[in-house]
Design a protein around this nucleic acid. Structure first.
Lengths: 219, 219
DNA sequence: AATTAAAGTGAGTAATCACTCACACAGGAG
DNA sequence: CTCCTGTGTGAGTGATTACTCACTTTAATT
């Protein structure tokens, strides 16, 4: 429960920070997200961001010392919000603290959570995926969250499911990789690669969960 | 068999083109691949490429009209070589022309093929994934290959497997998405995100195939 | 009304960028 | 030898870049 408290504090902090923002600062962030998502960080110019935000170029550098600091202040709140609640919903949290009965309920909340979040933040998801490759600061931030918060809980749940004979006996790292590959593959296809297709989201989510469930069930 | 012939011609053509290259031109391509993979296309400068290639900057523009043409001449041969042989190995080809007995054999050749290719061309794989998002020319080239060559054959094979009652009854697009998500998720993790981990490749390939097989088997 | 600190401005700057061009040099054909 | 064409060169160019700074405006406090 202490973990959960810490998480809530983190989220509250960031939303408090959001409220401190000047109107012009909000315009800057909005414009920067749009342009970064469209052309990538390296190909985006601060002059263009200023223009779209209806702001003088100097105003950007009043609030953010460098262009990179602007990127980071956009990306890191998203990263923590996207990765931490992985197991932070009340239901999912319970699943991971009590011995988990079934993988399916966990997968379903997890996928639906992240699906809604990705839908509402598609440009940010795009930016993170694109820029993570080139900015070590972002990689470190991600590793911190993933290795210390998500991975241990994930592994613990998998071990309990294995003990109950409900999971294939392959390494946890492999299981986690397959789950994340499938989930991220779905989200990336749905919201980044082909967002304009006619998606039957309800069914696709069900198919995806069934695929993982059968793929990982003890044979 | 005509398709197969065309494919061989395509591959031969590109390797013939490779042989026409000046030594300096090879140095340029090698340096460009390295630097594009390290810092991304937009953050790479032609001066740095020239320096690493031990070549004057003007030499680059003698062979490639623009920086973007250099990128494209690097990326498109890789894309066709990576996507086309999807079903072009003799064995896989047979599987897709005769009624397919099992999905497993197909998956195994397919994954092993692409695995070796990704291992030998990891920097190029990285460049393609990174730059596809921002260059419509690359997206079009990819769509041509995928929609006209791979997708129809893939779908045909899946239909035959479904008719035999060996596959779940969900849309082919969903099945294809899950297979590609899992395969690409493995290759990207293995060669781009965490290439320095201690990988047990033989087993990981087996796990991955088993995961897909069970995930897609008729329940 | 006076004071003050923060927010906002935009012309200015040095660096870097992709790309050009006039020229040097190779070697094969006539 | 004389062309000639393709290859290689590197100083030069205009455009663009992230960032600075002297200045003005805003808004809240005394």
């Amino acid at each position: 429960m202490t973990d959960f408290k810490k998480l809530v504090e983190t989220l509250d902090q960031t939303t408090e920070e959001d409220r401190k923002l000047t109107p012009k600062q909000e315009q800057i962030l909005k414009a920067a997200v749009e342009i970064f998502a469209e052309k990538g960080y390296a190909s985006s110019s601060t002059s263009e961001i200023a223009a779209r935000a209806n702001v003088a170029e100097g105003t950007i550098f009043r609030h953010y010392k460098t262009k990179k600091e602007l990127l980071i202040s956009i990306v890191t709140p998203f990263m923590t919000k996207f990765t931490l609640p992985f197991f932070a919903s009340h239901f999912a949290n319970k699943v991971f603290e009590e011995p988990p009965e079934e993988l399916e309920g966990l997968l379903r909340t997890l996928l639906k959570n992240r699906f809604e979040f990705a839908r509402e933040n598609a440009p940010l998801l795009r930016i993170v995926i694109q820029e993570m490759a080139f900015h070590p600061e972002l990689q470190e931030r991600f590793q911190d969250v993933f290795l210390e918060e998500i991975f241990p809980k994930f592994e613990n749940a998998l071990n309990q499911l294995k003990a109950k004979g409900k999971l294939v006996e392959i390494p946890n790292t492999s299981i986690i990789r397959m789950i994340i590959s499938t989930v991220m593959g779905f989200l990336v296809t749905r919201f980044i690669i082909a967002p304009d297709l006619n998606w039957d989201d309800e069914n696709e989510i069900d198919y995806t969960i069934d695929f993982i469930m059968h793929g990982l069930a003890k044979s």
